[in-house]
Nucleic acid binder design. Structure first.
Lengths: 143, 143
DNA sequence: TTATAATTGAGAAGTTTTCTCAATTAAAGA
DNA sequence: TCTTTAATTGAGAAAACTTCTCAATTATAA
């Protein structure tokens, strides 16, 4: 199921872009993958240090930036202004964030694809990109 | 057209919530309204000081938080991690941000309204809220 | 195996945001 | 209009967050 279980595949993703597949970057990716929850940077740092104790905070910042650029992770904006990160869904889709348990659920459709043309006609603005996050309660948390 | 031209109306919006209609809050609202552009907090602070020279930065932070809670302003998340603010569109809709001139254009439809039920069926997550920003180039900037 | 350049760790530095508290002032009632 | 009350402000300190610097390390390709 997951890209994290194919180390060679991941190595290629890095190397094709001239980036190195370092233990620190893999550790960050593993933390995001294993939790399936969106995590603050300091939470990620703590968990990464359980794998690689001497990892610096700056390395976590840099790794996350790299992973986002490779679309292996997504940056989540929260209302309180803090940023969190989560494992990226496969393909173009948007994260659904459970506000109870912080779980990240994928939804593999993008409502903007059909809409972009109509927005362009109505407003004159040609949409290049968009940013969408959904918040709700997942099945388990609704009981 | 605009709420800013009806001072009494705005005063009521504040007072009904037990909040005061202060010159500082009105100045922040006026800056957002007059520019029609999304502005960083320090840019807002500079412009507010042209109206009320002794306004402190903390007051700008607090005013923006208040205006967002009253849905008179919206918080914009930018990729570089900085936050900006813009005048809120009327009713529930989402800001379209021109990446050339920083103008804010309104689009008075919400693609999520129709979609929420289907998301719930497919993923089991009941959507409570969502956050959507669109980026593109406005008519004038496409020439 | 070696050479090269990307990456890291650690702390300093820079930014952004929040907090504190006395002084001010908007709002509501007399 | 005047007074009372509690919300709000300004200023700077403090806290939190993010980026930078640079010598040392190390993944990669040859």
């Amino acid at each position: 199921m997951s890209i994290i279980e194919e180390p060679e595949g991941i190595k290629d993703i890095f190397n094709k872009r001239g980036l190195r597949c370092t233990p620190q970057r893999l550790a960050v990716l593993k933390v995001l993958h294993d939790t399936q929850v969106y995590l603050s940077i300091s939470a990620i740092h703590s968990k990464v240090k359980e794998i690689l104790p001497y990892t610096g905070l700056a390395t976590v910042y840099r790794s996350l930036e790299t992973l986002v650029s490779l679309r292996l992770a997504v940056k989540v904006h929260l209302d309180d202004g803090c940023h969190s990160y989560a494992i990226a869904p496969q393909g173009h889709c948007h994260p659904i964030l459970c506000t109870e348990c912080n779980r990240v659920v994928e939804f593999a459709e993008c409502p903007l694809e059909d809409l972009s043309n109509r927005i362009s006609e109505k407003t004159g603005v040609q949409i290049d990109t968009h940013f969408l996050q959904l918040f709700g309660k997942c099945e388990e948390c609704r009981i």
